[in-house]
Design a protein around this nucleic acid. Structure first.
Lengths: 149, 149
DNA sequence: ATAAATAACTTTCAATTTGCAAGTGATATT
DNA sequence: AATATCACTTGCAAATTGAAAGTTATTTAT
């Protein structure tokens, strides 16, 4: 991996890892949109190129933010799942969306504005917890399916 | 400016603006390190190149995240100051540092770990508020100096 | 008044990164 | 056995990044 850090500042160091167009978008797709296969990601609205996706998934795995695994009944399709370290990024995503909701609509009026945004506005912390809980339940289901059928 | 957004997702849209190596680092330098002149930024630990700095400051200003101004007694030195829209990024920075503190020390052991980090760990929300308050006080002082001497 | 220093850029150009398109190999389906 | 699908990899062109040097305006020193 050999990650380079610009300095010893915790803010800058976080951005050395997460400060690009794709890392947090991929995490978001997993957490919010339930994406888990390579194909799921390529089919996204954000239209990530396959070579970039491949590189970023590898980096996320090396950093321990996601794990790569397979269902025993499907040797073809790899599954990419968030680890605890990855799930711990939820508050960052929530704060990003909050800022976007309050300050970006002016220059980008078509940003989605549905029930989920209402929930976010009413209780950020609860929203974050709900996302994490939902993902952990999905993880349980995934592993149940893999083991039990 | 002509900002391009990849889609209507609030998470992705925030990252269309903030998802790079420099935007939030510059905001951090203003908020935490009190940097306000072009020279302050070039002297930073992160060693940003002047052309990049110039471009990013312009973009931040166009987005309304910072304002560019001058003290009446100094026509040479420009001042770059955070707006409310910029100060509203504080919770994002706080969450980034929190994640870094918990999950990045393993691969980057020299990350700073002083009193401020203690405060952050003990009460994230209070830490964010303290940063914002301190910055607003500095703003008041800056404008007092400019107007009164 | 003149010269030197400083601040805030701008320009140039090389290196790196990004991303589209096409190709590959392993599995799965018909 | 043939075809389709999935997860990549490779090649190449375009865009972005960044180091170094240059430019202009203002301020300080002589």
């Amino acid at each position: 991996m050999q990650q380079d850090f610009r300095c010893n500042c915790p803010f800058t160091s976080a951005l050395d890892i997460l400060g690009d167009k794709w890392m947090l978008v991929i995490v978001k797709q997993m957490l919010i949109e339930g994406k888990e296969s390579f194909k799921d990601f390529t089919d996204s609205e954000e239209a990530i190129a396959t070579n970039i996706l491949s590189t970023k998934l590898k980096l996320l795995e090396e950093l321990g933010i996601i794990i790569k695994t397979k269902r025993p009944d499907n040797k073809k399709t790899s599954l990419y799942l968030l680890t605890d370290k990855g799930l711990a990024l939820t508050p960052i995503l929530v704060e990003l969306a909050t800022w976007c909701d309050s300050h970006l609509r002016e220059i980008h009026p078509t940003i989605v504005n549905g029930e989920a945004m209402e929930f976010l506005r009413n209780d950020k912390a609860a929203f974050a917890l709900a996302l994490e809980k939902k993902y952990r339940e999905k993880l349980a289901t995934t592993f149940y399916k893999s083991n039990g059928g």
